[in-house]
């Protein structure tokens, strides 16, 4: 089947089986390898992308449901996103495999709560597993991005 989507601001038509996972379409058809697969069953958040502004796990999304969707992946993250500098300054990425998904979840979080409390951050990122950092540096990075104060 043919599906029209907007991906990272660009209109595209993708030809694939309707039950293909959005994750595979992004990675294999479109070469957007920043979106990672950690579990393939909606538990880890490594494959998280924004779909119409909402953070969703692309490993659970069949292409058939994506007609006319507006999708943003890590490659489409605005280059001036304060999260890039703050994640870097706070050492929020270690092995980095969870990081693109974490960035997408944090982006959605900040657009809902521009000044989140720690509780809101913990709630907002609870769908994204990170085995390396213990989350502390990530909390700090999101808070710094929100306040605009980057300590380095």
């Amino acid at each position: 089947m043919k599906v029209s989507m907007q991906i990272n601001g660009q209109k595209m038509q993708v030809q694939a089986k309707p039950d293909s996972r959005l994750l595979d379409v992004l990675r294999d058809e479109l070469g957007l390898k920043g979106t990672k697969e950690g579990c393939g069953e909606g538990e880890c958040g490594a494959c998280a992308v924004l779909v119409n502004g909402q953070v969703l796990n692309s490993c659970l999304l069949p292409l058939g449901q994506m007609d006319n969707a507006d999708i943003v992946t890590i490659e489409g993250l605005p280059s001036d996103s304060p999260l890039v500098a703050s994640f870097h300054a706070c050492f929020a990425a270690q092995c980095g495999i969870c990081t693109p998904g974490m960035m997408m979840a944090a982006t959605a979080l900040l657009s809902e709560y521009p000044q989140p409390t720690l509780e809101e951050i913990r709630e907002g990122l609870s769908g994204n597993l990170c085995r390396c950092t213990g989350y502390g540096r990530i909390y700090e990075a999101v808070l710094q991005a929100a306040t605009g104060v980057t300590h380095g």
């Binding site: 390898k33 495999i97 693109p100």
Partner: peptide, 24 residues
Amino acid sequence: KAQPKRVDGLSKILGTAVYVDDIE
């Protein structure tokens, strides 16, 4: 003093680091 940033930081944050499953 400011600590140096991770040398692999940005590539991981921007999703450009290449893991085994990402190799073309």
